[in-house]
Design a protein around this nucleic acid. Structure first.
Lengths: 229, 229
DNA sequence: TAAATAGTGTCTCTAAGACACTATCAT
DNA sequence: ATGATAGTGTCTTAGAGACACTATTTA
């Protein structure tokens, strides 16, 4: 089938897309329409096409299979154990995407179905290939990046309150951060958030100032989760 | 040449192997023996063989091309821009290795020459492919991991003094850490280093206790480089 | 002796965390 | 009024950094 000495290894991309819905961390999964693992849930992904960037391929596959378009995609890690794909030696470059809870996925292409699935209702080993491991690595990356980057702002809408931002930390770290201290930390880290000047009245209690993400990507000093976990 | 629809993308591995020699950070490079970039310096690496793990392939190529055998290899990132290899679309999974200054490389295989090259004497864009970028990413990873892991102990021999360990930080961070504070921090971080009970007399000054690496891989709290850089 | 390096003491300052307190809304 | 959430004040404590000081060697 192949005449050259080398390309016996195929290259795919997969994406761990995360969001928060109803205070639960959710991942975007598709139900596979074809073998192998037909009918199983899996991360959206597929083969890299010629002359295509890895990130570009991941974004394309994501949109083809779930209808969700994403702007920022961070490379996570590459999984290349022989035997991870029964079709033959396949190397997968995994990516991480973080979105506010907004877009609803729609199946398509190789995916008979696509959905945001809460992490806590996934069975161990439920996913196709080694996607359980990939997902776990993606979540751990997100957990870690909450500490020293403004990643949390990617989980919330463009305009948000400090409480909404704190909810991100609470959900992903499984912690209850002190509202007062969190507020001070966030407001005091230059460039983390910027006040919009507006207020949100919604629920009970004093109305909250709203903010948008600031220009700083790195938090210094970080927001530690030492006491957490 | 290929009949199947997909594997038009080849998979290679490359390794950024770092050590410290004469107080300078050095990287293990080979001089390429064949096209493309014949005669240029490059990171050791090559094609992944069927049924081979990525880390295994990196270790094999490293040994074939430099004679240096390495036990621990950490995955760094994957580089897949089309056009990064003139032979065609090639994805490279880069790895990071850290060694004490001990083994001398020997060329072999596709490498006409292999050597530890000090980072500060490399010209910008001197390396083949996108290896300048890969190297920079590898160094940045090492810099970052010094903060929150015991990676520094991988740069020194099994038995070392606190000063030798501090030298690692000084060289890689380009800083001069306070000897007193560094000593306290290292000795006070449980599991970072363990005393051997022996002393090293060598140079002038009071003899130093020697240590070996402790069981802790993570430093908590980390050793910040906030004031540095 | 002086010079050099190893290691400790101690002070200051930043920032995290606990938690009380005030502010402003809905009911 | 009560209850809820927003946001601030204040105290304690851990730990980083500056730097003085002691300890133990070589020259």
């Amino acid at each position: 089938m192949y005449t050259s000495a080398y390309p016996i290894v195929s290259v795919t991309v997969d994406t761990v897309a995360l969001t928060i819905r109803d205070d639960r961390l959710c991942v975007l999964l598709i139900r596979r329409g074809s073998e192998p693992y037909a009918g199983s849930w899996a991360l959206p992904g597929g083969y890299v096409e010629p002359d295509e960037t890895l990130a570009r391929a991941a974004a394309r596959e994501l949109e083809e299979e779930t209808g969700i378009r994403v702007e920022t995609l961070e490379q996570l890690a590459t999984y290349g154990d022989p035997g991870r794909d029964p079709r033959g030696h396949t190397v997968s470059v995994a990516h991480l995407a973080v979105l506010p809870d907004a877009q609803e996925p729609t199946g398509g292409d190789d995916a008979s179905e696509a959905a945001w699935r809460p992490l806590d209702e996934l069975e161990p080993d439920e996913l196709a290939f080694d996607h359980d491991k990939v997902l776990a690595d993606g979540v751990e990356r997100a957990r870690a990046k909450l500490e020293y980057t403004n990643l949390a702002t990617s989980f919330v809408p463009e305009e948000f309150t400090v409480s909404e931002l704190r909810e991100v930390y609470d959900v992903i770290w499984g912690a209850r951060l002190d509202p007062g201290n969190f507020h001070r930390k966030v407001a005091g880290s230059t460039g983390f958030v910027e006040p919009t000047g507006r207020y949100r009245k919604g629920g009970s209690g004093r109305p909250a100032r709203t903010f948008r993400a600031g220009p700083a990507v790195a938090l210094n000093p970080p927001l530690t989760r030492r006491s957490v976990s």
